[in-house]
């Protein structure tokens, strides 16, 4: 079986290398992916269309905003699926009690975390809000934010973290994130555009259509950030306790 798999892998490797000789050379400006009308439009007109300096964010949140909405939904689904499968499952693995020790949260650790968490959270907000001009955005900001809650759970215990951010609230926040994203899309539809056509938001915002796209991108990034933060923490809480939501690591 292993040998058959090896032969298969080698064959696929050969096939892929055969295809690779047909690739355009590295960094070639004439390559289709660089010279096609679509890429040229992104490179030349992102600033004109959206006022956003960071081209990647504009492609992600505006030109292909529909993909990103569903990527956010994918994160949401992951949380829903993991929590619903683990919650009250029929086969409960009984944890070896020998290794569970009653312990007081460590003074040095908790005090350090007390200092660090606000900084992490502010940095998360920065990454989220600064996605337009520098690398960053909702996914990265959300992960940093979620990590701060996981840090709290690690240094105190899961109960302390769940008191601040319960699982039900996680799903409320995650659903809220999707509502923000889809809601901005729906609002632009109500105002006479297509779904996610942020330019039409200029009718309710006191800015030009291009700046409306700029601000709406921030809005959808915030939505993404909400969902990712909540699901990050929900996944940790659920997976580290086999769905019981107590004790934990």
């Amino acid at each position: 079986m292993k040998r058959a798999a090896l032969i298969l892998v080698l064959l696929i490797g050969l096939l892929l290398s055969w295809a690779a000789k047909d690739f355009p050379s590295w960094g070639n400006p004439q390559a289709p992916a660089s010279s096609s009308p679509v890429s040229s439009h992104f490179i030349a007109s992102t600033g004109v269309d959206t006022e956003v300096p960071n081209m990647v964010t504009a492609v992600l949140a505006d030109y292909r905003g529909f993909d990103t909405m569903f990527e956010t939904v994918v994160v949401f689904i992951a949380g829903l699926a993991v929590v619903s499968i683990l919650r009250g499952g029929p086969t409960r693995r009984t944890r070896d009690r020998k290794f569970v020790v009653d312990f007081e949260p460590d003074l040095i650790v908790t005090n350090t975390v007390r200092l660090i968490v606000p900084v992490i959270q502010i940095f998360a907000f920065y990454v989220l809000a600064h996605g337009h001009v520098s690398p960053g955005g909702g996914f990265q900001g959300g992960v940093a934010m979620g990590a701060s809650f996981i840090l709290i759970a690690l240094s105190w215990d899961l109960k302390t973290a769940l008191n601040r951010f319960s699982i039900d609230r996680c799903f409320t926040v995650a659903a809220l994130g999707i509502i923000i994203y889809a809601g901005i899309g729906l609002l632009s539809m109500v105002l006479g555009g297509e779904f996610l056509d942020y330019a039409h938001l200029s009718q309710v915002l006191p800015v030009s259509p291009e700046m409306a796209r700029y601000h709406a991108m921030l809005g959808v990034e915030i939505g993404v950030g909400f969902t990712v933060t909540a699901i990050m923490f929900a996944l940790y809480a659920s997976l580290s306790t086999d769905g019981r939501m107590q004790d934990g690591l």
């Binding site: 096609s36 679509v38 529909f66 056509d197």
Partner: peptide, 16 residues
């Protein structure tokens, strides 16, 4: 075309 990147003004494939 989602996002209002209509084919009249933009190349096909700019929007989804």
């Amino acid at each position: 075309i989602l996002g209002g990147w209509s084919l009249d003004l933009f190349p096909r494939g700019v929007g989804i």
